[in-house]
Design a protein around this nucleic acid. Structure first.
Lengths: 237, 237
DNA sequence: GATTGGCAAACAGTCGACAGTTGACAGGAG
DNA sequence: CTCCTGTCAACTGTCGACTGTTTGCCAATC
């Protein structure tokens, strides 16, 4: 019974209920895959024609991509793909580090055992995923771990901004690449974080979580959007 | 000549070049003025009818309001006004404090004199505005001061997120109310911030700026959206 | 009396069309 | 040859209409 209910709930959450959602995913993927280069112009009518739909859902998707910082809108001129510089990515990780640190501080202050148990369970699963060399699962648990911290330690706004920082894929992608070399290490690090959260010392919890994120920031490679295909780069300003 | 050019530039920046922009402003104002209460439902067609326009620009405005965190969109159900709790506002200030702190850190590391001069000029104007009891100007310079820090200390992403945190009005409104009682003090505090930025000590600059913002957070009254008409307030956590 | 099934109204999602603006280009004046 | 001006195509901003889903209500059933 419960299993079925959960399945139904998942179906409801399934994101592709609207064309606009599908377009959003398609364009986002195209950008990340490098099919759409930084600076490239996106013409609503052309996309509409190529996907065989009207412009309305395209506009909605573009607005959402703008919110995610992946495209730019110039009034009466059109839409342009934004390239993320390594600096940009670094900034996003920095902000994320602060936000999660803040959530961690609050979480540590209360430290409700259900949450801590949940986090511990996730770590257990991480370990087993690492044993199986199941990168996908490992990544998923990693994301869930951080989501749990934000959800239980932050108010709505903290979570809202946090989500804006990570157009779902980035984190997943970078984690995958980064941890290529150190699967079992991941679980260990999260255990360290959890210990800090359980310590009852908000300052310590905040510090550990912040460092945890910033370590990622250092390891993250240049974002896929970038793909400077050589040539003179006008990147000094 | 130059004057005219500047005037034209200002006209270009003027935001009401599209209906969607106007609708955005209208709805935002309605929410802040309390005409639209937290939880209230917004029906696209009704708004369209009342403003005598089609639904397209309304949808765009609603999407932007969602991005600003002022309304919520439930697929196939509609749009709902979101009420900001005092906790929410506090969170936003906290995040802002971190972001501006980060920008301050970088700014202090380089400390280009043009920027410092610009900031000093703004403080001078603040003082004179305070003398004149010109609250509007005082607020404007305050905002410009912080904008300058973000622009020169952050990469694009830092600024992008920073702007998301402050649907233009909040800051202005809260500053107005808060400083009602302490106009000349404002300039003094900003001078303190600027000194820290000039000190060449990034750690110190970050700390001072962060505190500067967090002081605001403590002073800020309950957000206007809220308008709890009495009743027990659930604000302890 | 409580539960289920069907119905109708309300509304979001989507569509195709039109109008105003912008950038590019060609042609003419200096 | 350079600069300005008029023209044109492309594209965004906006519109009204259609379609499918959701919700609340009422009747039929247990």
């Amino acid at each position: 019974m419960t299993g079925q209910i959960e399945a139904l709930a998942a179906l409801n959450t399934l994101e592709v209920r609207s064309i606009a959602n599908a377009v959003y995913g398609t364009l986002r993927k195209a950008i990340f895959d490098g099919e759409l280069r930084s600076g490239e112009r996106l013409v609503e009518s052309q996309i509409a024609q190529r996907l065989n739909i009207s412009r309305a859902p395209i506009r909605e998707a573009l607005h959402r991509l703008q919110q995610a910082g992946l495209v730019e809108h110039r009034p009466r001129r059109g839409w342009f793909v934004i390239g993320l510089t390594p600096d940009d990515l670094g900034d996003l990780y920095h902000i994320r580090a602060y936000i999660e640190g803040l959530a961690a501080r609050r979480l540590a202050a209360e430290a409700p055992s259900e949450i801590l148990d949940e986090l511990q369970a996730l770590i257990t699963r991480m370990i087993s995923a690492a044993d199986r060399e199941d990168l996908e699962a490992l990544t998923a648990y990693d994301v869930q771990f951080h989501e749990a911290i934000i959800r239980s330690g932050g108010s709505g706004q903290l979570e809202r901004i946090w989500r804006l920082l990570r157009p779902e894929d980035w984190t997943a992608m970078s984690v995958l690449k980064v941890n290529d070399m150190a699967h079992p290490e991941i679980a260990k690090r999260h255990q360290f974080v959890l210990d800090a959260l359980s310590s009852g010392d908000p300052d310590w919890a905040e510090t550990v979580v912040r460092r945890h994120i910033l370590e990622l920031a250092r390891l993250v490679p240049a974002p896929p959007t970038l793909s400077y295909g050589g040539g003179p780069s006008p990147s000094d300003a």
